[in-house]
Simulated scan of single mutants.
Amino acid sequence: MLKIENMGISINEKQIIHNITCTVNKGKFIGIIGPNGSGKSTMLKVIYRHLKQTEGIVTLHEKEIWETPPKELAQQIAVVSQETPLLFDFTVKDLVLMGRTPYKKWLSTDNTEDYQIVEECMALADVSYLADRTLYELSGGEKKRVMLARALAQKAEILVLDEPTNHLDIEHQLQMMDLVKDLPITILAALHDLNLAAAYCDELLVMKNGTIYASGPPQQVLTAENLQYVFRVNAEISTNPFTNKLHLFFYTK
């Protein structure tokens, strides 16, 4: 579905990521983990065309992403980035409506279907009560959930999330992860919380020094040896009795 071959990117003659090769299969929840500066966000920015790779190729349905018209790509890939600066202070409802833009012709107006989708997506992201508030009135966590609602309104087949639980309290972290896990689409998410990654992701890409160090199911890649080498921490690994997923306890000495 989404295929990356020998991808690399250099910025100001500095190699940021290199030799990235992987395939993201349809319907999978893929987590990207790694320490700060390992290249997680840069890799995602190449995938959603915020940056252009200087090496290799990225294809979606066997078509290079830079050959895909922007509107068509927006129907295929939706994004919730770490920060979303806006020049104007829109209401939450208007902002979520922007997720329908890829389906609009020039000067066409929003219709009943658009409004229905917006209401559904705001409810899914638990932001319906914020519909008439402006973005500048919201907390960081509320903004994050609004941007998720906008991405959901795109009805794309791939959802890219860059630190989706950043700024969220524990309740909304779990709500967001539950929500995206249940979506019948492909999820590609950069995550800092390794326990969330272990609990929700089907597969993990472990990044270090700008490339993929390990990949596979959480049980395969989240080993004490890998965690010590990649994150420079010691870990005790057990099974959560409530979820039957891995649970990691970290210590430095």
Rank of each mutant, 00 (worst) to 15 (best):
D193G: 10
N234P: 03
Y136G: 08
V233H: 05
I212L: 14
L138Y: 09
F29R: 03
K144W: 09
Y129V: 00
N226I: 11
P35S: 14
D202A: 10
T239C: 15
S238H: 10
V24P: 10
D126P: 00
I47M: 05
E64F: 00
E83M: 12
M122A: 05
Q15L: 14
Q220C: 06
A214T: 02
V230M: 06
K63T: 09
C121R: 02
Y129P: 00
I17M: 09
R49G: 00
S238Q: 09
L205S: 02
L179N: 04
V46D: 00
E157W: 00
K45Q: 04
I32L: 15
L60H: 01
I170Q: 15
Y200A: 03
V221W: 08
S81C: 07
F29E: 03
V233C: 04
L73A: 00
F249G: 03
G37K: 13
S128I: 08
W66G: 02
K71E: 15
V127F: 09
E83N: 15
L107W: 09
Q219A: 11
N234C: 07
Q228H: 12
T252H: 14
D114F: 05
H61F: 09
N6P: 08
L97R: 07
A199N: 12
E62F: 06
M207T: 03
D202M: 11
N12K: 11
Y115C: 00
L86H: 06
E119L: 03
I20Q: 01
P70W: 01
K155P: 00
T54C: 03
K155V: 00
G34A: 13
E113C: 02
D114R: 08
T109M: 10
A189V: 02
F29N: 05
G141Y: 15
A125V: 03
I33D: 11
V160D: 02
E13D: 14
L222T: 13
Y251T: 13
A235Y: 10
A190T: 05
I4P: 02
D110C: 01
S10N: 10
A190E: 02
M7L: 15
Q53L: 01
E83V: 12
T101E: 08
P35G: 12
L73K: 02
N234M: 06
A153L: 02
K45E: 01
Q228Y: 14
N240G: 13
D126T: 11
M177T: 13
A189S: 15
